[in-house]
Design a protein around this nucleic acid. Structure first.
Length: 481
RNA sequence: UCCUCAGUAGCUCAACGGUAGAGCAUUCGGCUGUUAACCGAAGGGUUGUAGGUUCGAAUCCUACCUGAGGAGCCA
């Protein structure tokens, strides 16, 4: 109620401001103020419903009000077509000069892009309108008119990456960005639904951490109080292991930070990661859950976000192939396959981006690779019992060049072995005492994985770069807006 | 950190050693079914910065700044 009053007051104020700019607009402004006042007292709310554009279908033939922003305006003399967006969709409106009070028609006709306004009118099915419905305008109220001295910078034509990134706060209003963020929303919701319905408990891990998971070179350092240094987390995994020993099956889900000086289409310095961890789980169970999650998420996006994928011009046939079982291979087999394809990889090296693309090019779904050389993996991986030089780690590589979307594996549960590994990696024992406790008090085999949300969403959307999958991307040389 | 490419009107680009131009955006005019509408007109520039070569530099050279793509590293 208080919100409505505030909007009405703002509308009245902005109309009087707009009217001052017109010559002889004083009487009209006063008339408009009268309308705004009647709205405040709700005299019209009984006959007219305020709807969001995505509800238009259910209000065919009815008089409704839409509150939004001017997305585009096409003029043809005495008939104009303002396209309004309200966050839920786009609605083409039709304003005919002969059917409207002169000031209303003139205000609409001269409106600038992204000016905020509310329009009232009748919803009508119309094949010529994008979306299938349009609004025959009977009244309109401009809330704020964007002044022409400084027009909205993002025009309907093309723009470069630098310009769009500098205007990210406005770029989010565009259709493609809207679609990508909605797919992101669906993926995040899907992740939560999957884990919540499979016996997992959300137990979030800290963002400020006292020490590194895997060495300090890729951590952002933060000044804490009294000369203390802390770091922004790059993984919740160590805490996840403690949580799994407390709750059985857990997941954490939040932002993570990597101070890697990576400058590619797959990297952000701040990105979201979901990390499940399961007590009594071995490598095979980790692989099973990872695959089931991915199949579920792809199916869900296809089911609920067809409109968005269409806007993004995503070839959904490629996503429809993503079903169980995923092809699986060992690191050994992967290296052989890559060598046969002409890669320069040698046993013991990690896969480069071109290697990842080569590995997946023969498949229409993600590829699961496991049992990597222990040397190129973190200290906490359980060794393969048959070949101790291998770590029971697993990666899932998405098709179409989207790269590694999941990394995980089985963790060391033996105290002596874990102590040995800490020494080998020259990690300070005292910082890991609490972590070692997990092997002292009822240690069990366990494992889990991490999935990067942005890479997954980029794959779903078919985007060239992960920067469009997060509202405000943080990258090597970009921290604004 | 390294390699490659690019900085010209608010935006996207052209001009490639000889007076800086187009489309979009903005303003004005026209159009009653437009679909990034269309048609006509106007305003809009220290060509990223600093040096250098030249009669003359947006254009050639050097350094720097900014951005993009890639490598390594990673989700």
């Amino acid at each position: 109620m208080a919100g409505d009053d505030a909007v009405a007051a703002l509308a009245a104020q902005s109309i009087s401001l707009a009217a001052r700019a017109e010559s002889g607009g004083r009487a009209r402004a006063s008339a408009r103020r009268g309308q705004a006042r009647r709205r405040r007292f709700g005299s019209r709310s009984r006959v007219m419903e305020r709807i969001s554009i995505d509800q238009a279908r259910a209000h065919e033939g009815q008089q409704v009000e839409i509150q939004g922003w001017l997305y585009n305006l096409r003029k043809s003399g005495k008939i104009i077509f303002p396209v309004i967006r309200d966050g839920s969709g786009l609605m083409q409106c039709v304003a005919v000069k002969s059917n409207l009070p002169e000031p209303v028609f003139e205000a609409l006709k001269n409106l600038t892009q992204e000016s905020s306004l509310s329009v009232t009118g009748t919803v009508r099915a119309e094949a010529r309108a994008p979306g299938g419905y349009e609004l025959d305008v009977t009244d309109a109220h401009v809330v704020q008119r964007v002044p022409e001295e400084r027009p909205y910078p993002i025009t309907p034509k093309e723009h470069g990456v630098d310009f769009l990134m500098d205007h990210r706060h406005l770029w989010l209003r565009s259709r493609r960005q809207h679609a990508a963020i909605r797919v992101r929303h669906e993926v995040i919701k899907g992740i939560r639904d999957y884990f919540d319905s499979h016996g997992f408990i959300l137990v979030d891990t800290p963002i400020f951490t006292p020490s590194a998971c895997e060495g300090t070179s890729t951590l952002f350092e933060v000044d804490y109080f009294e000369d203390e240094k802390v770091y922004l987390t790059q993984s919740g995994q160590l805490y996840n292991e403690a949580n799994a020993m407390a709750f059985g099956k857990v997941y954490c889900f939040g932002p993570t930070f990597r101070a890697e000086k990576s400058k590619t289409r797959r990297h952000l310095t701040e990105f979201w990661m979901v990390e499940p961890e399961m007590a009594y789980a071995d490598l095979e169970e980790v692989k099973r859950v990872a695959e089931e999650l991915v199949v579920y998420l792809v199916g869900r996006v296809l089911e609920t976000r067809q409109e968005e994928l269409k806007v993004l011009e995503r070839d959904t046939a490629k996503l429809a192939n993503v079903k169980s079982p995923f092809p699986r291979m060992s690191y050994d087999e992967a290296v052989k396959a890559l060598a046969a394809k002409g890669s320069e990889i040698r046993w013991g090296g990690d896969f480069g981006n071109t290697d990842e693309t080569l590995l997946t090019q023969d498949f229409d779904r993600p590829v699961i690779v496991d049992r990597y050389p222990a040397e190129i993996k973190a200290f906490y991986f359980q060794p393969d019992p048959e070949r101790p030089e291998l770590a029971l780690g697993v990666d899932m590589i998405a098709p179409e060049g989207y790269g590694e979307i999941i990394g995980g594996g089985q963790r060391i549960h033996d105290l002596a072995l874990l102590e040995k590994r800490l020494d080998e990696h020259k990690l300070p024992r005292e910082a890991f005492e609490w972590y070692l406790d997990l092997r002292r008090f009822g240690s069990v085999p366990h494992g889990g994985f991490g999935m990067g949300v942005e890479r997954f969403v980029a794959w779903m959307c078919g985007l060239e770069h992960v920067r469009e999958t997060i509202p405000y991307p943080r990258m090597l040389y970009r921290t604004r807006p």
